[in-house]
Design a protein around this nucleic acid. Structure first.
Lengths: 158, 158
DNA sequence: AGTGAAATGAATACGGG
DNA sequence: CCCGTATTCATTTCACT
């Protein structure tokens, strides 16, 4: 991916509602050219979608935690993500290297809601849990610097 | 916060570029009414912003890790978030309860880049690190169900 | 808080270099 | 792959309930 696409991606990552007009100004291209590029980035899956960033305190989910899970029966088929996907309090599920198999990021309303959620997680996926409660979040959702070329599987190799 | 605002927040969380026209259709309000509500949600900080969701593989940052940090000198003032904020590979920084003081979520291009980043983290904040590498991400950025009332500090109490 | 209507500005489709 | 133009559609403001 080259310079201008990287710039577009960075701009949209920091303001997902930026207009094509503004993107055009920032990149020095015409509106139709950026429009075309954004649609292509969406189609190729580089831009996977757009989301409002919500203040979880303000919507009644002030408690965040990381829940690491480990299967009770290590021989059983590992379909924990599927078994847990109905629990909407789980914002993310990462398969990880290390002692435990997944790290879940969860958002709940209260300590009691967390207790309840942990029981549901254990029951749904037959796992043990280890929970790390978030006290505060100095920052989140930051934009990385995108540098140089990256393998998209779409560019020409020569 | 009541029903319609919750609906608007949920819709924008799942599609940050949804038009006011579509929001109006989905909520049964007029365009100007939703417009007013969205602006109010933004002003009150319930909606903190908008972001494009990026495929990190496609932009050359295919490696994600969680880095837990612990101060070398527990007596020193704890300004790790400030000391680390210049490292753009750090997407999020959470202060946590437990043995360690912060969990960082980082995105890097390669194992070597992670090694380099860990050295920078240790040097910048005078901390030890414990790193959990993400192997795959079954899901991320999911939208929680927003239920009932939540304390925004803005609604009338009677 | 809500509405509809009017004016501005943005998104999209198109013809062409 | 880029541009400009023309059309359609969304955003924003306003006067009013």
């Amino acid at each position: 991916m080259e310079e201008i696409d990287r710039r577009i991606v960075t701009l949209l990552a920091s303001d997902g509602r930026m207009s094509f007009t503004d993107l055009a100004r920032e990149t020095g291209l015409s509106v139709s050219a950026v429009h075309q590029r954004v649609r292509r980035l969406e189609k190729r899956g580089v831009v996977r979608g757009y989301a409002a960033i919500i203040d979880h305190d303000a919507v009644g989910l002030p408690m965040t935690a990381f829940v690491s899970i480990k299967p009770i029966d290590p021989a059983a088929p590992d379909d924990a993500p599927d078994r847990l996907s109905h629990l909407t309090a789980i914002e993310a599920c990462h398969s990880v290297a290390g002692d435990e198999s997944y790290i879940l990021k969860v958002r709940v309303a209260s300590p009691v809601a967390l207790e309840d959620l942990l029981q549901q997680i254990r029951a749904s996926a037959n796992v043990s849990t280890r929970t790390t409660v978030v006290l505060s979040t100095p920052y989140e959702h930051r934009i990385p610097e995108l540098a140089d070329d990256s393998p998209t599987g779409h560019e020409r190799t020569g």
